[in-house]
Simulated assay, not measured.
Amino acid sequence: MFMVILLSAGILFFTIIIHGLVVTCLYSLCIGAVRNARNLSGIARLCLTYVFVLGFVFAHFFEIVIWAVAYRALGALESMEEAVYFSAVTFATIGYGDVTLSGGWRIGSAIEGVNGILLFGWTTAFLFKVSGTLWFSEDSEDPKAGQR
């Protein structure tokens, strides 16, 4: 059990590092446009929103695949398709229960669920902040905004 916890913690840390790199890359790529959101059209703002959302979708998928590769490589699941499916359901904390791990690996799936909750939360917080800046930047620049 200790080895499963150790391996799962390693995967968790690895996916957190990946997520942090994606956040940093997306931010670096788009910071100029986000800072000048007041000068952008609605379509341009929407396109920037798509960049962030799609970037995070790909990041989450990649993180799910990392867990799936680990399950498959360690023999916890029979096929890669089953491993990706199980990992996606676990990472998203849906937990259908139609595919399960053997007793020794169940703790790993619990750690993956925690990983998914944390990374989805991080994504949500980041998207909330970026969306506020993109779509409501006029209000924050308006000197009368605080008097309403």
Rank of each mutant, 00 (worst) to 15 (best):
M1V: 10
V4E: 08
L6P: 04
L6A: 10
L7E: 07
A9I: 12
L12E: 01
F14M: 13
T15L: 06
I17P: 00
I18G: 05
G20E: 10
V22H: 03
Y27H: 12
Y27M: 12
L29I: 08
C30N: 15
G32H: 11
A33T: 13
N36Q: 11
N36M: 07
N39D: 14
L40Q: 10
S41F: 11
S41V: 09
S41T: 15
I43N: 12
A44M: 11
A44L: 04
A44I: 06
L46Q: 09
C47Y: 04
L48S: 02
T49V: 02
Y50E: 13
Y50T: 13
V51N: 06
G55Y: 01
G55E: 08
G55T: 03
F56Y: 15
F56R: 06
V57M: 06
F58L: 15
A59D: 12
A59C: 12
A59H: 00
I64F: 02
V65L: 12
W67Y: 10
W67H: 08
W67E: 03
Y71L: 15
Y71N: 05
R72F: 09
A73T: 07
A73Y: 04
L74E: 09
L74P: 00
L74Y: 05
G75N: 04
A76P: 00
L77K: 06
L77F: 05
E78Q: 14
E78T: 10
S79D: 12
E81F: 02
V84N: 03
S87L: 06
S87V: 05
V89M: 11
V89I: 14
T90G: 00
T90H: 00
I94S: 10
I94H: 11
G95E: 02
G95R: 06
G97W: 11
G97P: 10
V99S: 00
S102F: 07
G103C: 01
G103P: 01
G103E: 09
R106M: 13
S109L: 00
S109P: 08
V114H: 02
N115A: 09
N115E: 01
F120Q: 07
W122F: 14
T123P: 00
K129I: 12
K129T: 08
S131W: 03
L134A: 06
W135I: 04
W135P: 15
F136Q: 15
D139M: 13
S140G: 03
S140Y: 13
P143H: 07
K144A: 13
A145V: 01
Q147E: 11
